[in-house]
Amino acid sequence: MNAEVATAPVAEAAPEKKEFWRWQENVWFDETKKDWREAKIITCGIDVGSVSSQAVLVCDGELYGYNSMRTGNNSPDSAKNALQGIMDKIGMKLEDINYVVGTGYGRVNVPFAHKAITEIACHARGANYMGGNKVRTILDMGGQDCKAIHCDEKGKVTNFLMNDKCAAGTGRGMEVISDLMQIPIAELGPRSFDVDVEPEAVSSICVVFAKSEALGLLKAGYTKNKVIAAYCQAMAERVVSLLERIGVEEGFFITGGIAKNPGVVKRIERILGIKAVDTKIDSQIAGALGAALFGYTLMQKQAKAA
């Protein structure tokens, strides 16, 4: 190689713009379970949400693996990519799957789905699996909407309410604050407790106004942590008011990405005076998991009818 070329000055690369809002995408499968090739019924749930997409595989009614990633430009590709990610990991092909159920706002655009079921029914079913049959009240804090759901011991919805009118109290709202504060999204929750005194909630319930209010608080001398705490408190108050409309019963479970943010979850628990049911399963896959479980039930019904 020509040394002169090799050492020639190169234009300085533009500094990479940090994406503080970017949350951890995740592909996982349960290595302790028997190989999927031994399963009699394999079902898949695909949840195409406005912010994230998940593909969950269920073997004989048990969670086997999943892929959780950011939603792309269109629903069909997001669905395909989510499923491909987990299938590649375990050497599975689409034809190995017996039944696919689509859910989420893009559920009718999952090209290989046999059926579409609303995210309300799927979150209830997923929460029933993740938190057990004692779960009665579910709060789903999704990317761009919030749902309050009551269900019975089988995970069947008995009452629901959805707020998709504004992004306050949703994952998208938290992403906006993460970017604004220039703090990685996973750090927001823990940092919201690193304050001398718990601040009042930001007064606005609209994410756009909350943004300008947050900037105002910084100018007024609030630390970033204090602003985050005020925002987490506002989100908690906002979703609690949604929950109060249908009432909160014991066996309270939170699904969706915000369930991973202790800054919001602990404040919700504090306001309600009850603790949310714990789970080791990623809260973000509840909808897709419920969809895959619906698929399993449908396959069992078909088998019985045959």
């Binding site: 008995t158 009452n159 629901f160």
Partner: peptide
Amino acid sequence: MIANYGYKDGSGEYYI
């Protein structure tokens, strides 16, 4: 099942 459709905003709660 009780299905609630609507929203809550600064002016009030509007659910059917």
